[in-house]
Write a protein that binds this DNA or RNA. Structure first.
Length: 657
DNA sequence: GTAGGGTTAG
C-alpha cells in the first residue's frame, strides 16, 4: 500500500477521486485491482478541475452549462464532487428548477460529499419546497455524511423564508447534537436571524449570549430585532457595546429611530455616523429621508435632497432614494416637488408609484391619483396592497364611491390581492364620508374579516362628519372594547353628542374619560419660519415670547374676516357654554395661533406651512380659507389625516375631510 | 454562506 501524505489525502478527498480505502462506492463496484493514479496525473486532473470550475463560474445560460456538463462527462469528471458541486451551484444561481437537472446530476454521483449534498439542500432552500431540503438532509445523515456549517445556514435560511420556527428549532438542535456547529459564527448569526424574523426575540438573544465570539453581524441582527419591537433602549444599549460599528450597524440605528417615530434621534445618529467617518449609502439615506418626512419641515427636506445628490444617490438614478423623496415631499406639503422627483426618475417601481399615488391622495388630488394608478397598470408595474390603500383613500377623500368600489373589486379579480382589513377600512371610510352610514355598517357586518379598531374608527369618524349619534354609539361601543385607552374615540363621541346638543351624554363620556384616567392629547401646531426654525404652539398658548402680539394679530385678522362675512362656527367648541365663551375658546386653537405668528413674521410671498397633530376643526378650516383670500397668502395645513391647501379662499379638500 | 431600506386607512 502506498503511504499518502495528509495533504495529499485532503486533496484527494476534495477532488473526490474515488480511492477505495477512503470511499465506500455503492454502485457500480470499483475494480479494486485498478492501479492508483500517479501523482503527476493527479496534478493534471486538479488543473482541469480548476479550469472547469472557473468556466462554470462564468456561465450565464443553461445552454452554456449543458455544454460544460458534456465536457465534464467527456473528461471523466462526472464523479468529481468538487466539479459537480460547482455545476449544481451555478444551476441554482440561474434559478433552474432543482428537480429538472441538478437533482439528476446529483443522483448520478455514487458518493456525494457533504458539499454536493449541501448545494442541493441550498437549492431547495432557495427555491422550495422546504420539505425536500429537509429530506435531503435526512438522506445525508442516513448516508452517514457529516454536514458542514453551510448545510445548517442553508436550512435555517429556508426556515426563515417561510417563518417555520419549529423546524428551525429542530435544526438548531441538530447543529448542537452533531457537534459544535452552533459555535460557528455563520451558523450562530443565521440562527439569530431566524429567531428574529420568526419573532422569537428571546431565543435570538439566548443564541447571541451563548456565542463564544460575536461579530458586528451578530450585534446588528439583534439591534434590528430590538428596533423592530420598538425597544430602542435595548437597541442603543447593544449598539454602545459594539466595538467596531460599520455602515450597516449605524444604518440599523438610524432606521430604528425613524421607524419608531423618533425622527430627531434618527438625524442625530446620522450626524454621529458621519462624524465617525463611516460611509453612507442609499439604504442609510432612505431612512434619513423617512425621518425628514416625519419632521415635515421643508428645510430638512431640501437639505437631505442636496445631500443625496452630492453623495451620488440622486433620485434620477436611484429608485430607492427617489421613492423615499416622493413620500417626503408629499408629507412636507409639496406634492408639486414630489411629482417633480417622480418625473425625474429613470426607473420607477411599485414603491415609487405607491408613494406618488399616496401623495396625491393625501393632498386631495384624486384625479391625479387615479390617472397615475391607471398609467401604472399600463406600464406593467404590478400594484400591491399599499397602492390600493392609496387609490382607495383618494376616491374616499373626493367622494368617488362608485370608482372606489370598482378599484376594490379589481383587487382580487384583476390583481390577485386579497383585500385586507386596511382596504375594508378604506371602504368604510368611502361609504361613511359619502354619508352612506347604514351601508358602511352593513359592510362591516358582512365582510369576511373580523373588524378591528380602524374599521369602527372610520365609521365613528364618518358619524362625526354627518352628525349621526345613533350609528356613532354602535361604533363607539365596539371601539371602547377594542381600544379601551384610545382617548381620541371618547373625544370624538363627545363631540358627536355635543353637535347634537346632547349635553348630558357629553358629560357622561367626559366622566368616563376621567374615570379611566385618560389624558387628552394636547393640540399642537408647528410652523416653520423663513429660516427653517420650527415654532410650537399649544392651544391657548401664552408661553411664546410674542404671545400678546400674536393674540392681537389674530383678533385683528378675525375682525377683518368678519367684515367679509366670516361667522365663527360655534359647534367647533363642543362645550355647553355661552356663545361668547365658545367664540373665545375658538380663538385659542393652536393652528390659529400658528397662522397669526406666520402672518406676523413671514414675508408676503412665503407659503405658510402649519403642521397640526390633531384634526383641524371646521372653524379653523373656515378661517384659514378666508385668510388665504384676504391676505393673498398660500396656506398649507397638515393635520393628522391629510393636507389642506388654501389658495384664494378655496381648499384643496373641497371642504370634504 | 451570516446583519441595514423606501409606500398603509379612522
Amino acid at each position: 500500500m502506498v503511504s499518502l501524505s495528509k495533504k495529499l489525502i485532503k486533496t484527494l478527498r476534495r477532488s473526490a477521486i474515488l480511492i477505495p480505502q477512503f470511499y465506500e462506492p455503492k454502485a457500480p463496484a470499483l475494480d479494486l485491482h485498478e492501479p492508483f493514479i500517479p501523482v503527476s496525473k493527479l496534478q493534471e486532473t486538479k488543473l482541469l478541475e480548476a479550469q472547469l470550475v472557473s468556466i462554470l463560474d462564468s456561465c450565464i445560460s443553461l445552454t452554456e452549462i449543458k455544454r460544460v456538463h458534456a465536457r465534464i462527462i467527456r473528461k471523466g469528471l462526472d464523479q468529481c464532487s468538487f466539479v459537480v458541486t460547482k455545476l449544481v451551484r451555478v444551476l441554482c444561481k440561474l434559478n433552474t428548477p432543482i428537480d429538472t437537472y441538478a437533482r439528476l446530476i446529483f443522483s448520478q454521483v455514487y458518493c456525494p460529499n457533504p458539499f454536493l449534498y449541501t448545494a442541493i439542500i441550498r437549492g431547495y432552500s432557495v427555491q422550495g419546497p422546504l420539505e425536500k431540503a429537509v429530506f435531503l438532509y435526512g438522506q445525508m445523515r442516513r448516508d452517514d455524511i457529516l454536514p458542514v456549517s453551510f448545510t445548517f445556514t442553508a436550512l435555517l435560511k429556508a426556515c426563515t423564508g417561510v417563518l417555520h420556527v419549529d423546524l428551525g428549532r429542530q435544526i438548531h438542535g441538530q447543529s448542537l447534537k452533531i457537534g459544535g456547529f452552533v459555535q460557528d459564527l455563520f451558523v450562530g448569526n443565521t440562527l439569530i436571524d431566524m429567531y428574529v424574523k420568526c419573532g422569537c426575540l428571546d431565543f435570538a438573544r439566548r443564541v447571541f449570549d451563548e456565542l463564544p465570539t460575536r461579530d458586528v453581524i451578530s450585534f446588528t441582527a439583534l439591534i434590528v430585532a430590538y428596533a423592530k419591537s420598538g425597544d430602542m433602549v435595548a437597541a442603543s444599549d447593544l449598539f454602545d457595546r459594539l466595538p467596531a460599528k460599520d455602515m450597516v450597524a449605524w444604518t440599523a440605528m438610524v432606521t430604528g429611530f425613524a421607524q419608531n417615530a423618533q425622527p430627531k434621534e434618527a438625524l442625530e445618529y446620522f450626524e454621529k455616523m458621519q462624524n465617525s467617518g463611516v460611509n453612507t449609502d442609499e439604504v442609510t439615506l432612505s431612512s434619513v429621508i423617512s425621518a425628514c418626512a416625519q419632521l415635515g419641515a421643508i428645510k430638512y427636506a431640501n437639505w437631505v435632497r442636496d445631500f443625496a445628490e452630492r453623495s451620488g444617490f440622486g433620485p434620477t438614478d436611484n429608485v430607492l432614494v427617489g421613492s423615499a423623496l416622493i413620500d417626503m415631499y408629499s408629507k412636507c406639503g409639496s406634492v408639486e416637488d414630489a411629482f417633480k422627483v417622480f418625473e425625474s426618475m429613470k426607473d420607477r417601481n411599485v414603491f415609487s408609484y405607491s408613494s406618488m399615488i399616496g401623495g396625491f391622495s393625501m393632498h386631495g388630488c384624486a384625479r391625479e391619483a387615479i390617472e397615475l394608478f391607471e398609467k401604472m397598470m399600463k406600464v406593467e408595474v404590478k400594484p400591491n396592497k399599499v397602492t390600493f390603500v392609496g387609490v382607495l383613500a383618494a376616491c374616499s377623500h373626493a367622494g368617488l364611491v362608485e370608482q372606489g368600489q370598482h378599484f376594490f373589486g379589481m383587487m382580487e379579480n384583476g390583481c390577485g390581492i386579497k383585500p385586507s382589513v386596511d382596504h375594508y377600512t378604506c371602504m368604510i371610510d368611502l361609504l361613511g364620508r359619502a354619508g352612506r352610514l347604514e351601508e358602511a355598517l352593513e359592510l362591516i357586518q358582512t365582510m369576511p374579516i373580523e373588524p378591528n379598531g380602524s374599521i369602527w374608527g372610520a365609521l365613528l369618524g364618518a358619524c362625526r362628519i354627518h352628525r349621526n349619534p345613533k350609528v356613532a354609539e354602535i361604533a363607539a361601543k365596539q371601539l371602547f372594547q377594542l381600544e379601551p385607552d384610545g382617548i381620541g374615540n371618547y373625544v370624538l363621541l363627545s363631540h358627536i353628542y355635543a353637535s347634537a346638543g346632547r349635553w348630558e351624554d357629553v358629560s357622561r363620556v367626559r366622566k368616563l374619560i376621567r374615570a379611566k384616567r385618560l389624558i387628552k392629547t394636547p393640540s399642537l401646531s408647528m410652523v416653520e419660519d423663513e429660516n427653517g426654525g420650527l415654532h410650537n404652539f399649544y392651544s391657548d398658548d401664552t408661553i411664546h415670547p410674542e404671545s400678546k402680539l400674536i393674540k392681537q394679530t389674530l383678533q385683528d385678522l378675525l375682525k377683518r374676516l368678519k367684515v367679509h362675512g366670516y361667522q365663527p362656527i360655534l359647534s367647533s367648541a363642543p362645550y355647553d357654554v355661552s356663545d361668547e365663551e365658545k367664540e373665545r375658546i375658538l380663538l385659542t386653537h393652536s393652528e390659529k395661533l400658528a397662522l397669526a405668528y406666520s402672518l406676523l413674521t413671514t414675508s408676503a410671498n412665503c407659503v405658510i406651512r402649519i403642521i397640526k397633530n390633531l384634526r383641524i376643526c371646521e372653524d379653523c378650516h373656515s378661517v384659514m380659507s378666508r385668510a388665504s383670500q384676504l391676505t393673498s397668502r398660500e396656506i398649507v395645513v397638515r393635520d393628522n389625516l391629510r393636507f389642506h391647501h388654501f389658495r384664494k379662499g378655496i381648499c384643496s379638500c373641497g371642504d370634504f375631510w
